[in-house]
Write a protein that binds this DNA or RNA. Sequence first.
RNA 1: GGCGGCAUGGCCAAGUGGCUAAGGCGACGGUCUGCAAAAUCGUUAUCCCCGGUUCGAGUCCGGGUGCCGCCUCCA
Length: 478
Amino acid sequence: MSLRIYDPLRKRKVEFKPVNEGKVGMYFCGMTVQSEPHIGHMLAALTGDMVRSYLEYLGYEVTHIQNFTDIGDSVLEKALEEGVDYKVVAERNIDLYFEQARALNIRDASIYPRATEHIPEMLKLIERLVEREHAYDSEEAVYFAVRSYDNYGQLSGRKIDDLYSGVRVEVSGGKRDELDFALWKKCPADEPGFDSPWGRGRPGWHIECSAMASRYCGETVDLHGGGLDLKFPHHENERAQSEAANCSTFANFWLHNGMLTVGGEKMSKSLGNYVAMGDLLERYNPEVLRFYLLSTHFRSRSEFEEKQLVRAEGSLDRIREFSLGLHERLAAAPEHIEVQSAVGKALADATTRALERWREAMDDDFNTGGAIGRIFELVKEFNRLVAADDAALSADREALVAARDALETMAGVLRLFTDGLPIERKLEIPPQVTAWLAERDQARVDKDWAGADRLRDLIHEAGFVILDGPEGSKVKAR
RNA sequence: GGCGGCAUGGCCAAGUGGCUAAGGCGACGGUCUGCAAAAUCGUUAUCCCCGGUUCGAGUCCGGGUGCCGCCUCCA
């Protein structure tokens, strides 16, 4: 098996092959930092992180670029509203992004280029487009001539003639064609802007990604990602500019993550129905949020429901218990065994199978939902074997190690646990709770059930759950 | 209106024409417990509707129905 990725141009999954053997350049469109990140932004970032992680697992050396659009009308408007410099708004939201992305165990990309720091690259690209007559200067802006690029519309599956709509406003500002879009928007001296051969202005939205992608990944990026809503016009325009300027393929593979909806409607800043990441992080374990987002295929659209987060919590606990169970047995397992038991063999087989199937799922267009299912299959088999013959299973160090390593890979590549696999229950039991527990044990010996239950309530309120088992009573965190 | 996508058990969600349609949550029934809880085991679907292709379709094709996204800033 090898990695296959869905290609929107060919509308089918295609075997992944990087431009340079062993190396992958991937560019993901990051957020326009006009406001705080919401969970949809994080889904996009997480998709990039997951893809990178799996590619690295496959042995590729990955250059992962994710930009920040730190200038643009929406950022400027926000700054104006607040009466501060646009950079203040941008910095604040970039800081928030980093804080929240890291909380989600998203690794830092290789580089986070910002639009405002790549003006020279953009100007150079525009210059080339003008030279090649793919772009023209006019009164309000430098425009890209859409009709000059033959493949326009291919990526988003549109016919260029269908894009004209009767409702659209009249061609204005010196546009030669209604569909042409701005590469460089001219602005007055008192507005934030940069000097250019065409006068003071600001970059159009699409040009930054074209310029930065090729600056860091070369003329052809292996993977280009972003939300599905960016497919048109953003990615279509990026592609048009870059290919017209360079006469080479802009991106070999496109990864568009599906949209998160709330109440059936797309979550977005403009609709105001977004769920702020900061808010969620206050109420949920970030590991749960990550697990939740990975449990659905990234290309699917999905309805965001908090009740699913609550469920994800329980699911993740199941994997956590599995890891703890493995490590507990591993810590006590003998160095060697003479003959492998039936249950040991069964665990070894289940491990091999889970890992294979996990990889098949990941190879299939990064099917994380399926991959997580494979983890649970191993969990279930392990628990079943524990129930069947715990003693024999606990004695099989080799099988336990293999299972642990497999889990380490499967959960590790998905980065499900921020601090690595859960190894031991970290529990600080206050002396008071220990005392109550002892008191309760005595009450139980005395068959004073009312007293025992009262103590159990006290311990519960202190944040602990009592586990009564054959070997006596223990507590664990609630 | 144009383009694209999706429809799988109570909920969420995998499924690359063919052994018993993953997995999670929930529910129900066991194990454990003094009773519980926690943990765990088991049980729990023929895949929106109608046609077609095929020896065989959830999986391909056509037609419905419903939902979503894009066509304007947008992850």
